[in-house]
Simulated assay, not measured.
Amino acid sequence: MRLIASDIDGTILGHDGRISARTVAAFRDAADAGIDIVFVTGRPPRWLDPIRDQIGHTGTVICSNGAVTYSLESESVTASHLMGWETVEEVRGIIAGLAREPYFALESLDGFHVEPGFLPRDRPPSLQAVIPEALTPAMADGGIIKMLSVLHSGSADEFLDLVRPRVAKLIAVTHSAPEMALLEMGPLGVNKAVTLAEYAASKDIDAADVVAFGDMPNDIEMLGWAGAGYAMASGHPGALAATALQAPRFEDDGVARVIEARLAALHRT
């Protein structure tokens, strides 16, 4: 074990925005043992406060499902994969023809752009400052890293099954929001595994020496690529089917338990 790659939401972070003391201690002990730590998330760079403030991580975070590599040490984007406006426009048209009243948003390197109707009326405080506006080609100037589409009814799995067959040759599409029909779409051929593999190669670390944790469909490729990919027992069926290894439930500090056991095994050798 030379590298630990962990998803954030639902894997180490709960709905209350907290990471358990046991999990914080497990990552600290792994870092003290010389193991590289990288967090791999669907979150954009601006939503990394939990790992910065609670774990004290100052290294690399792979954001936006692999579209962005971000350094917490320098607070800067170190690499990115971008989408063109033509792709956004084509995919938007396809989804609008498949689903009733889909709404769209774009994540770019310079901000979050949502069209009217995308956000629910009870949108969380973190999004209160976002002003709904028409999505325009000018937004591509900021470097589009993620496209989102939401239905205010139905499930994410149903929405994904409807859309994926029609857009799979244009864009990478997945989801990580079990309680809403929200799709996350990124540059074609880019996912968490692709960018994690690039990061590991830059450190001369083989996939066999990587331990990864995840819980949702956007973690599937990463769990399959890592030498030891652990799906959370509390995770989505798709994530659980992607790997033979399973960590205890999030509520039971599953990630911490696996890291503790693996560190103990290292000390015995």
Rank of each mutant, 00 (worst) to 15 (best):
A256I: 14
L109A: 11
L82V: 05
R249M: 01
I37P: 13
T69S: 13
V258D: 02
F39G: 02
G143A: 03
P165F: 06
V61Y: 12
M147F: 08
I51P: 14
F159M: 15
Q128E: 05
R121E: 15
D253H: 03
L127G: 00
E75K: 14
N191A: 13
K146Y: 01
A264V: 07
E86D: 15
I131Q: 08
E133S: 15
A67Y: 05
A231V: 00
H81R: 15
E158D: 15
S74E: 06
A33F: 15
V77D: 06
R18C: 01
Q128R: 12
S153D: 15
V130H: 04
S6F: 03
V211R: 05
V167S: 03
L188Q: 13
V114A: 11
G143W: 05
L106K: 02
G10Q: 04
L240T: 01
E221S: 07
R262Q: 15
V194G: 02
D122P: 06
L263E: 13
R52L: 09
I144S: 08
L127E: 09
R18M: 12
A134I: 08
P178E: 09
T136W: 11
L263N: 10
N65M: 01
P45C: 04
R43Q: 03
F104L: 05
A200N: 11
R249D: 08
D122A: 06
I171A: 06
S176T: 14
L182Q: 08
L245A: 08
H113W: 13
V40F: 04
L223E: 07
K192M: 09
A226Y: 03
V167I: 06
V130A: 01
S64D: 11
N218I: 08
V211F: 05
I51M: 10
A21R: 14
A181D: 14
V88C: 15
A256D: 13
L3I: 10
S155Q: 08
S176H: 03
D32P: 11
Q54T: 03
M83A: 09
P217M: 00
L160N: 12
P45G: 04
F118C: 08
A67I: 08
W85M: 09
S71Y: 04
A26F: 12
P116H: 13
V211D: 00
T23Q: 09
E75G: 13
H57W: 01
V258W: 02
A156W: 05
G59Q: 04
S76K: 13
P44W: 06
S176G: 14
G10L: 03
T69W: 01
S64E: 10
L148C: 06
P124S: 14
T136L: 11
A207F: 00
S149Q: 08
R43S: 02
F27Q: 02
F104W: 09
E260N: 07
A247C: 04
P248I: 00
A30W: 12
A156K: 03
F250Y: 09
